[in-house]
Design a protein around this nucleic acid. Structure first.
Lengths: 354, 354
DNA sequence: TCGCAATGCACAATCGATGGTGCATTGACT
DNA sequence: AGTCAATGCACCATCGATTGTGCATTGCGA
């Protein structure tokens, strides 16, 4: 009853209670008893006792012995946006379906934290690690490889393991084109009226920015100055960039390419400081999908990365025999404004929503 | 190099290499060597070897021996919305600050899954478990108590352990009043123009619904019929409820009390099927905060639960000496439309957003 | 009745780290 | 020289489960 008073029952306890040896108890409880030709009667007796005493296997002990744990890890940068939280949600379903236990941790985009966290997970003998959007994928990969743990990068590629990423170049092309297409020939967009906000020095940002600039140059011509405002993955920095732009030009560009939903939150903060009417003519493209963002009071075109496929491919790659690291591109999808798409939660809610 | 070929170094390996005994190596590596009066020179030699061979402690073995693990668990219903993902984000920061490793898992609002998952975590000797929004908190609490693991319920209360929850009654009162206050005396809201969508048979929903009905009755009078549309935590069910209401009445109520952001997504789905112009006069109150939802094309008043305080209190309760289960109420906050509040990510992004 | 195979289970080593105990060695001091 | 305390470290049991091995017992056919 009292806090920690009742220690958990072990196979040794059951061994004494049942009069069988610990190894017999173990075999019965882990299901290998048929193979060991244990009598059905013995097995049933032990199972009864186990039930009665609320026995549960000490998985640390088992893990130590077998050096496997049934745990599968997902290492995220952060939890708090729809892209990564959908990732976690989808991951969870996949792992459960395989009868394993999904473990999610985040490391705040800190290379050091990433490596340490991976080591911690590995120390618990997780069987696989999926590394999402790591700032230093190679560092994490080293750690995994040293421990002989299967691992795959997702979202941001590394050079030392397989990677599954969005086709950021193609996605950014689609998005840029869609933004420009919103403006009819009667009042066409000028080159200096379309700017990109967000992005950082990672593979995804670089691809998106390059594609944005290329596409824009082809369709509109380019204005080199202030075309790209790099702000990192920070709402507050993004807000700062918008404020600065506004201070300089007295207005926002008519069209925005926003590099991620996190940067979109910077735009929200900017909006909060001004009347709604100031944004009626804005067109925004956002590289990420968030259902609520899709219904903002101005057209928001979004890119939805195909998380389901990315996770599925990642599992495939992880279970393949070793081969030189390859990077798999998954096509993202353009989402028109005012779209409420189904997400990973929908597969659940059938089960138990009442 | 090759996949799993290099086994991880153990204290026994280092013991052989250094010529010291395993226990000496262990003491050096876990920092207790001063206490054991190991010579500095010996320690340095061993630390050197450890570095050189990339030694990392096998935490399963340590955990087995010490029956403590340094892991702290968070059990969520789901990941994929801002409430729970903020919860995870905040939790992560708290645990890291204490030098431990946060582990997050979700159990899809399935009582069985909840218990099993808790058992799995416990088998890894997690030191504490925070149980968020569990469908069956008492079941999970039983499991924890049987194992002597400290645990606290969050968001939904249980009878067998401390709980930290929002003051749902007060929050719903604030929200209902704020919704009604949006309508001036020149065109006051009628009782049948304010309906609640969402909710399920859990403590939070019951409180909110009761408070909604009470407040509404006091301020507007009540219409008993169709005032509350229970839909569970499912976007699709919520969509269904809106469609049904629409089919029956030929329109939506002018004002909505939506029970959670998940139910808000049902409203989004409804919106996607109709022109934007159909929603210009709508006023919505949503019991949950999502920055993007706050900027929808109609006024959305939101309730933000004070996650930071809830987590903080939960940690406090968890570390108190045992006492009869108590439920702590945390005051939520009313958020006016078009508000972009800072969140748990903001404390991070200073560190490394470039 | 003897031998052999099948049956049922116990024994003991092992996974890697920890920590209580206790044996040598050294140095200081009488 | 002899005593005693400090110093430095090795030994060994232990955490709980797994698994290869091998010893009894039973049953059957010859």
């Amino acid at each position: 009853m009292d806090r920690a008073l009742r220690k958990k029952a072990t196979i040794y306890d059951l061994s004494v209670l049942s009069g069988s040896s610990p190894s017999t108890v173990s075999a019965v409880l882990n299901g290998t008893w048929q193979k060991r030709r244990i009598a059905q009667a013995t097995a049933e007796a032990i199972l009864g006792l186990a039930e009665q005493h609320q026995y549960t296997t000490n998985l640390q002990a088992r893990g130590l012995r077998r050096s496997r744990s049934g745990l599968v890890g997902l290492l995220l940068p952060v939890y708090d946006n729809r892209y990564f939280s959908s990732m976690a949600q989808t991951f969870e379903a996949f792992v459960r379906r395989r009868g394993q236990c999904p473990i999610v941790v985040s490391a705040s985009r800190d290379p050091d934290e990433e490596r340490k966290t991976a080591e911690t997970l590995i120390s618990y003998s997780i069987e696989e690690l999926f590394v999402v959007g790591a700032t230093d994928p190679d560092g994490v990969n080293d750690v995994c490889r040293a421990a002989g743990i299967r691992h795959v990068n997702i979202d941001l590629p590394g050079t030392k393991a397989h990677s599954v990423i969005s086709d950021n170049y193609e996605g950014a092309r689609l998005l840029t084109e869609a933004i420009i297409a919103r403006f009819g020939p009667e009042d066409p967009l000028q080159p200096d009226e379309l700017c990109l906000f967000g992005g950082r020095d990672d593979h995804a940002s670089r691809e998106r920015i390059a594609s944005f600039q290329k596409t824009k140059t082809v369709l509109l011509g380019s204005n080199t100055e202030g075309e790209v405002q790099s702000t990192g993955y920070s709402p507050e920095m993004t807000l700062g960039a918008f404020e600065k732009f506004y201070a300089t030009h007295g207005k926002l560009p008519r069209a925005l390419f926003v590099n991620s939903s996190i940067n979109m939150e910077g735009l929200l903060r900017f909006m909060a400081r001004r009347p709604a009417s100031a944004f009626t003519n804005l067109v925004v493209g956002c590289y990420d999908y968030d259902p609520f963002a899709s219904f903002l009071p101005f057209p928001v075109i979004m890119i939805r990365q195909d998380i389901e496929t990315m996770i599925a491919k990642a599992f495939e790659l992880s279970n393949q025999p070793p081969s030189p690291p390859q990077t798999l591109l998954v096509q993202p999808e353009l989402v028109q404004p005012r779209s409420a798409l189904k997400g990973p939660l929908d597969s659940l809610s059938n089960k138990n929503s009442a």
